[in-house]
Write a protein that binds this DNA or RNA. Sequence first.
DNA 1: CACAAACCAC
Length: 585
Amino acid sequence: MEPDLSSSSPHSSLFTSLLLAGRRIRPLTQIHARIIISTLHPNRSLLTKLLTLIISSGFPLYARRLLPSVPSPDTFLFDSLIRASSRSTLPLHSLHFYLLMLSSSLRPSNYTFTSLLKACADLSASNLGRILHLHVLAAGFDLDRFVQTSLVVFYAKVGNLVVARKVFDRMPERSVVVWNAMISGYEQNGRAGAAIKLFYLMQEEGMEPDEATLAILLSACSQVGEFGLGKWIHEHYIHGKNSRLGVVLGSSLVNMYARCGHVEKAREVFEGLDEHNVVSWTAMIAGYGMHGFAEQAMELFKRMQLYGPSPNLVTFVAVLSACAHGGMVEQGREAFESMKFDYGLIPRAEHHVCMVDLYGRAGLLAEAMKFIRDQITGEPGAAVWTALLGACKMHKDFNRAAEISTKLLALEPENPSHYVLLSNIHALAGKMDTVEEIRDVMISRGWRKQTGYSLIEINNVSYIFRMGDTSNPQTVEIYQYLEELICRIREAGYEPMTDSVLHELEEEEREVAVRFHSEKLALAFGLLSTGEGTLIRIVKNLRICGDCHLAIKFISGVTGREIIVRDKHRFHHFRDGLCSCQDYW
DNA sequence: CACAAACCAC
């Protein structure tokens, strides 16, 4: 008898049950039982659907046991299993199905490779993906647009931007999706400038950006503080197109405004959204947190708990770090307990780091140690020790610092930033011989310190300053004005903090006096170029140094200007001689 | 016959 697919057939009723069951393992096992006891011939497409759903519900091993019962397996069966695995929480199983597919002498299709490459991308399985690239070539799918796009995504995700770009450049036709993949690849790997440059190329080639392009670009703007472009995207593409602002772009905008220093504008966009989800709430809370506005962050978090969606792990990173930066120890502790007991979330390493930071910044170093002992199962990660070491530096607890740095260097002996931190601590302790030793080690390993720069935007034009910079046409005036400012703040009580700062290897070259640090130059230029009362915004790529922080506090006092500096970690709002970070950073 | 690639918060 021909299989009857009309609504009365038993196969069809099983199919309907499968669709109803969805990705829930219990109803799926019941359907499996019905198939076994029914007198029907096993039906391949029915079993394909069943196995796919079983994998999607997280039981790939169950599916593997069932697989031999599928009659005359075909490419579509394996493609479905590979695809379901690649999107599951256990993407590695897709490789197992691929090997079974090959050993069944079935030819892979272009669909096979898109899923496999996605699995490799998500697993950061760089070698495996490269081998699969060879399989793509051997199977003759290297000209398939979908496969090429997957290759771009894969190479970008594992950080091999050169090869990703090579595949991208060789594509005869590029969809908006592959443009987005390549731009996103740069952005994800910290190459925001390259991402923005590729977007300009995309425009030149007449390719229209879509929502995803804009979301990626807004992230790139956030990363480097390119407020001009971010604002232009908002006005030109989002506002200008008169389309309603969805929650995805809305969250990107909230993040962009906050990370470019416009936290009130971020709030305005947030309030204007028709729809809020956990991402938009989290973006706004994180925005307040990074500016040191812990009260506003906590107020919003309370509102979210009352009227918004359930906070997730990322929300708690934002909440805990806001508490840490605002010195709100008790509220942070409560939030951490609430996360576990009210929301059933299991804290991860990043939450532990926030808690250590919370106690550490507040000077409760013993409490931080106790937290590590009691709350962290297994060996704490390097990030936890880094946070604690930072706290030791802040509170000048050199004995504890020595103990912790031993653990840290044992865990990650090849991380240059640990050596920078250690060198700074020894400099603070006045152990200049050790500072020299550490510096020699860094030089011998060929570790180069990042050079610092500061960006300032005036009348929609960005200006960049490096230490001791003389490239600006107004250099003479800038340096003169800076000297004058320093005289004025010295009269107000400022004392340069040269000794410790000169040894901060991460900061600008120590050969150059602290007074020519890039943020001071940018600030002097900003004050000269703008009128009385204008807010000054500066973006710095590294952390602001202690001396610049002190000097800018005084400058905000003597000039009556409000100054916002974004450094590598957070924002500093200087006003009337004080900073929003409360000297905690 | 069907199935594919990019997209916001730390």
